[in-house]
Simulated assay, not measured.
Amino acid sequence: MKTLFILNDAPYGTERCYNALRLAHNLMKQDPGASIAVFLMADAVVAARKGQKTPDGYYNMERMLKRVVTGKGSVLLCGSCMDARGMADEDVMDGARRSTMDELGSATLAADRVLVF
């Protein structure tokens, strides 16, 4: 089953990104053959910034997104949202990449489920 997660909120401050990725990890655990795609837009693009340092015992979005990538999922970032926040391709963690609304549209049509956080 193909599941697309669309995340909009900043990675820290609310727990929407955190909870979305917890669910993504759980789906990957329950069904190792599941296809998981995470599309970050608006302030959520910052979740894929490389080199994040968080206090001990606090969740880290970069590490959580890496689990999606290592589980054969994809992490895509809205390119215009990146530009609006001064993020360049070099600022993005390994395994994630700049994307477009056209690609989001295609991923939405291909998905069996679309979850928006």
Rank of each mutant, 00 (worst) to 15 (best):
E103I: 13
L76D: 02
Y18S: 04
G73T: 07
A24P: 07
M1I: 11
M82W: 03
E15G: 14
R85I: 04
M93F: 09
D112N: 15
T14K: 13
N19A: 10
S99G: 11
T14R: 11
D89W: 07
T70A: 14
G71L: 02
D89I: 09
Y59H: 08
D43I: 00
V46K: 00
R63V: 08
R22Q: 06
K2I: 04
G73R: 05
C81Q: 05
V68K: 01
G33M: 10
A10F: 02
E62T: 04
N19V: 04
K72C: 10
T100A: 13
V114Y: 11
T70L: 12
D9F: 07
A48R: 00
G33W: 02
F39P: 00
M61A: 14
M87P: 11
Q30K: 06
A48H: 01
K72F: 05
D102Y: 12
A107M: 14
K72E: 11
V45H: 06
T100M: 12
L40K: 04
I6R: 03
E62N: 02
K29T: 14
G57S: 03
Y59K: 01
D83G: 05
D94F: 13
A96L: 10
G71C: 01
D31I: 00
S106K: 15
R49Q: 05
R97N: 11
D112K: 15
D56T: 05
R49F: 00
G105E: 03
L21G: 08
N26F: 15
G51A: 03
V75E: 05
E90I: 13
L77F: 03
K29M: 09
D94H: 13
R67T: 08
L21N: 05
R16Y: 08
T14G: 06
L23P: 01
K72S: 12
A110M: 10
G13C: 12
D31M: 06
G33D: 12
D9G: 03
E103L: 13
L23K: 07
F117R: 09
L7W: 02
T14N: 14
G51D: 02
